[in-house]
Design a protein around this nucleic acid. Structure first.
Lengths: 216, 216
DNA sequence: ATTTATTCTGACTGATAGTCATTTATTAAA
DNA sequence: TTTAATAAATGACTATCAGTCAGAATAAAT
């Protein structure tokens, strides 16, 4: 009786097909300007069907964001595992973040949308994908926190750092950079002659100043 | 013939009254959930009249944001003028930013909305208040940049800093902190036991690490 | 008192997120 | 094979809301 299983599989495939369609539409003209009817047309389904698979437009968007977060999660995990020292783990995480931005700028940009979302514990049933994004986001944050703790213990990071607070600041700092690059990147490039990569590079450089242990 | 002048004055008063009403409505339930009809009712005007004074909802919101930016502008100016050394100017700017957040959390939060806006040079006619916000935002940024330059020259900041890039990073960093406090502040307070002020304080502390000159 | 200019109104339009009674397709039972 | 039961999909419909505009109301000028 593999029918139930097959149905389950088909359901998942259809759900993914809808996310694919939404990605195409949302990324091409921006979520704000994209309509559910357009997603439905791209997916070759009726609008009503979309709502059988997703609670609402925002949750569908978070299904896309979740894909990005999962990619980033893999990269972070890899980064943390392959390096020994705390400072190197953090450098590798920074590198992963940077590469992610370079390789998937649209996912990176979509992530900003999630970062702006207020965490609402009640919303789990109403917005399952939002909830899932929160979970995955917490895991990413956890990787950073662990790396900081490791670094403090192995002496590669300043011993007086507060692991939790410094992780919060690192996270906020990174997202701030991402956001300014997204919203003002073109302006800076055209008017000030500085490239987006320069901003990212430089901010990582400065981060190292407050992280690195300088004995003596 | 002071009629034209009186008319001019009344027009401005009415415009301000509308901004007052919009502030009440937008701040009480959030811009997203607030309608122009509600603003009209609060202002005791018809909806059509709102559109004689403002191009659209977003521009009206930016009229509110502009009030916040102007407050911040005064504080920044005061901060820069009263201090001599570059590092002290920056500290005072940080302090001003912090006080602004404490005293006007709603304006601070509204500012985030503007920071997320892509700069569109074409939009000036269509969204005059957005354009004005951009101008004022640039001035704020200019204060920071000047303070950094001063600090490099007077030796209170690291001599190898790139004034433009470090200003961009400072700006992005600050906004990132603001955003994380807005979106995750409650979460951090309840689940991790860290207050919003702690995050702000700590991030300023860390900023000083990459700014301050440590000779020897 | 009449004309002109200015300000305001609110019913209307268009766009779009989300719903739901109905139809179509699939599987199980007779 | 026919019929009943279950699941998936549809698209016309509703509700909401930003933004418009022809005309009413008010004020100023002649």
């Amino acid at each position: 009786m593999g029918i139930t299983e097959r149905r389950e599989r088909e359901k998942e495939q259809r759900q993914n097909a809808i996310i694919d369609a939404a990605e195409t539409v949302f990324f091409s003209k921006g979520v704000e300007n994209a309509t559910m009817d357009e997603v439905a047309e791209q997916a070759e389904l009726s609008k009503g069907t979309l709502y059988l698979y997703f609670q609402n437009k925002d949750d569908l968007y978070h299904a896309i964001i979740l894909r990005g977060l999962n990619l980033l999660h893999s990269s972070f995990e890899e980064a943390v595992v392959k390096e020994e020292k705390g400072i190197d783990k953090l450098n590798a995480i920074g590198r992963a973040y940077y590469d992610f931005y370079k390789q998937y700028p649209e996912y990176a940009n979509a992530m900003l949308h999630h970062e702006g979302h207020k965490i609402d514990i009640e919303c789990n049933e109403k917005n399952p994908f939002v909830a899932h994004c929160n979970e995955t986001g917490n895991k990413l944050f956890g990787f950073m926190q662990e790396a900081v703790k490791t670094g403090i213990q192995d002496g590669s990071l300043r011993p007086d750092l507060n692991p939790l607070l410094v992780s919060v600041v690192l996270w906020a700092h990174s997202n701030g950079i991402m956001q300014i690059i997204e919203s003002k990147g073109e302006f800076f490039e055209k008017m000030m002659g500085i490239k987006r990569e320069d901003i990212m590079d430089y901010s990582f450089q400065l981060m190292r100043c407050y992280l690195k242990n300088n004995p003596g």
